[in-house]
Simulated scan of single mutants.
Amino acid sequence: MRAAMVGVAVVGVLGMTAAPGGAAPSDSAAPSVPAGTVIEPAIDCHPSDVRPNPVIVLPGADGGTADTAAQWDPMVSALRGQGACTLLFQGGIVDGKRWAGDMSSAARQLAQFVAKVKAVTGAAKVDIVAHSAGTFVANYFVKVLGGAADVPNMVLLTPEARGCDGAGFLAQYGLKNLPITPVQLITALPFLVPVLSTLMPSMANALQLTPASDVYKAVMNGPLTQPGVRYSVMATKNDAIATPPGVCSFITEPGVTNVFYEDLFPGSPAVDHSTVRSSPDTTNWVIEQLYS
Rank of each mutant, 00 (worst) to 15 (best):
A188Y: 03
S28A: 15
A61E: 02
K125Q: 15
S232L: 09
V129M: 05
A106T: 14
L290P: 06
C248H: 02
M75H: 01
R230Q: 12
A188D: 14
V271N: 04
V120I: 14
V137Q: 12
V8H: 01
F265L: 07
V256G: 03
I56W: 04
S278Q: 13
P201C: 00
A206V: 12
V256K: 09
V94H: 00
A106S: 15
A70C: 05
T135I: 11
T236Q: 10
Q109S: 10
D67S: 13
G147E: 04
V120M: 05
S232W: 03
N258Q: 14
Y291C: 02
G222R: 05
S279R: 03
G246A: 11
V151Q: 09
I186C: 00
W99E: 11
G246V: 01
V219H: 05
A24N: 08
G222D: 13
P244L: 03
S292P: 11
A188W: 07
S132N: 07
P201S: 07
E262C: 01
L156T: 03
H131P: 11
I56Y: 08
S28R: 15
L79C: 02
A204I: 05
H46N: 11
M103S: 12
V6H: 12
A235G: 12
L156Y: 00
M234Q: 13
T17Y: 12
A100H: 08
A106K: 14
P227S: 14
A133R: 15
V193K: 02
C248F: 04
G81S: 09
N238S: 14
A270R: 06
T275C: 09
I251V: 12
K125Y: 05
S249I: 03
T68K: 10
K125C: 07
A4N: 14
P41V: 09
I251M: 10
A66D: 07
D281F: 13
G64D: 10
I186M: 09
V33P: 00
W99V: 10
P254H: 10
K118D: 08
V8A: 04
N284Q: 14
T282H: 02
G83Q: 07
A70S: 11
V137H: 11
G122Q: 10
C85W: 06
W285T: 01
V271G: 05
A235R: 08
I39E: 15
A23M: 08
I180H: 06
V271S: 01
D214T: 13
Q71Y: 12
P194F: 00
Y231C: 12
S213F: 03
P223A: 08
R80T: 07
T181W: 01
P182I: 10
P152Y: 13
A3Q: 07
L88K: 11
Q184M: 07
I287N: 00
F250N: 00
G246N: 04
G101H: 04
A19C: 15
V247L: 13
A206C: 13
L58I: 04
F191I: 01
D62S: 15
I43R: 03
C164S: 03
P223M: 02
R2N: 13
A218L: 11
T121D: 03
G246F: 05
G222M: 10
T283R: 14
V256R: 07
N177A: 12
S292K: 15
P179D: 11
F250C: 08
Q90D: 13
L79K: 06
P59M: 11
